[in-house]
């Protein structure tokens, strides 16, 4: 071992400090916003930690429930502190048109052909496929529900119901329970009569609904016995099962699936790093780790091939889960979202 002569030591320390300062500017930390809970935990394992290891840049985590106002305010004030955001499809399209999100350059992310076609959009690239399913607490119910019609059946399945607070998917499930076929749901909802029909159906169980907002609340409400059945994101229920809550069960009949996408708010000073992160998180091997942590389907086709065979039946993309499932109609929600959310809110407050 060489010992550094004591006279040189301060210099060496100063040099090291200068080096670390340089290094500090070389890899900038970025802020990534997701939907929180177990979804975020899975992202830490699959994306954030490996990214920090590979590049040395830290990821500052944040969470939200999909409200776009904060992003709009940041972009409007030209003071953007969120670098990468997880967004649901209709919000992505709307935000893209309204100039909230950067138009993506796929040359910096990966070949478009590697992704499920629907996951590639002008301003976003899909992270994963998720489903909204019917979940129930088997300890609280005598029989097992099998459909959304059962969700509405208060006689056979007494108890409170949980639903995500908002029009999106709530109206779809109401129509399904009222006997509308999945392929006709959006056709029906596009008419005034169809919307009225959905709200009338919701009136039947309105006093029995506990509304939730954050995805993590659904399994909590079920496990605590506050509700006996709820609509829920499949990954949240699956991770709760893994944590030992075996009494939580899922019904895949007529589930609705959609993508969550990465998007970059316009005006972020760290656009290059944001691209780097998205490219990294879109790699098949990282998406594979994510699907292993929380059963949401990869959007990178090569990632789908890598996924552990044991997990495949839990993914929204598994053939038996796709049976009777239908995709959220992004265009419909872009067009009618604001109006229907407003009406939903008025209805809920009465």
């Amino acid at each position: 071992m060489h010992r550094i002569p004591s006279k040189v030591r301060p210099l060496a320390v100063a040099g090291a400090a200068a080096m670390s300062l340089l290094a500090g500017t070389a890899h900038a930390d970025i802020t990534v916003i997701s939907f929180g809970g177990t979804n975020q935990k899975a992202q830490v394992k699959a994306f954030y930690e490996p990214y920090t290891k590979a590049t040395g840049s830290k990821i500052i985590q944040g969470e939200y429930n999909g409200e776009q106002a904060k992003i709009k305010a940041m972009v409007g004030a030209k003071n953007v502190s969120w670098d990468v955001v997880e967004v649901e499809s209709p919000e992505l399209v709307r935000g893209c048109e309204e100039g909230l999100y950067e138009k993506l350059d796929f040359a910096r992310i990966g070949p478009k052909a590697d992704f499920i076609p629907a996951a590639v959009t002008e301003c976003g690239v899909g992270i994963f496929v998720w489903s909204t399913v019917l979940a129930y607490n088997s300890d609280a119910l005598k029989a097992a529900p099998t459909s959304w019609a059962d969700f509405w059946d208060l006689k056979k399945f007494p108890g409170k119901r949980g639903m995500r607070k908002g029009a999106k998917f709530t109206l779809e499930f109401a129509l399904i329970a009222d006997g509308v076929k999945p392929e006709n749901v959006y056709k029906e909802l596009a008419t005034k009569a169809g919307v009225d029909r959905a709200f009338k159906k919701l009136d039947q169980i309105k006093p029995h609904i506990r509304w939730w907002e954050a995805g993590a609340q659904a399994p909590q409400l079920l496990a605590a016995g506050d509700v006996v059945m709820t609509s829920a994101f499949n990954g949240r229920i699956a991770t709760a099962q893994k944590e030992g809550k075996k009494n939580l069960k899922m019904v895949w009949t007529n589930n609705i699936y959609d993508f969550d996408s990465w998007a970059i708010p316009v005006g972020t000073p760290k656009k290059d790093e944001a691209y780097k992160f998205i490219a990294f998180a879109s790699k098949p091997e990282n998406q594979k780790v994510f699907a292993g942590e929380i059963p949401y389907g990869p959007t990178n086709l090569k990632g789908t091939a890598l996924v552990d065979k044991a997990i495949v039946p839990e993914l929204p993309t598994a053939p038996q889960n796709m049976k009777g499932a239908f995709a959220s109609n992004t265009q419909f929600w872009v067009e009618h979202g604001e109006d229907l959310e407003q009406r939903f809110n008025a209805w809920a407050a009465k």
Partner: peptide, 21 residues
């Protein structure tokens, strides 16, 4: 509260955050 107990300020927050109106 449930949606039935929400007062005027809740709707201000709803329009500010959710529908950006």
């Amino acid at each position: 509260g449930s949606p039935k107990e929400q007062m005027a300020s809740y709707f201000v927050a709803f329009y500010t955050n959710q529908t950006i109106n």
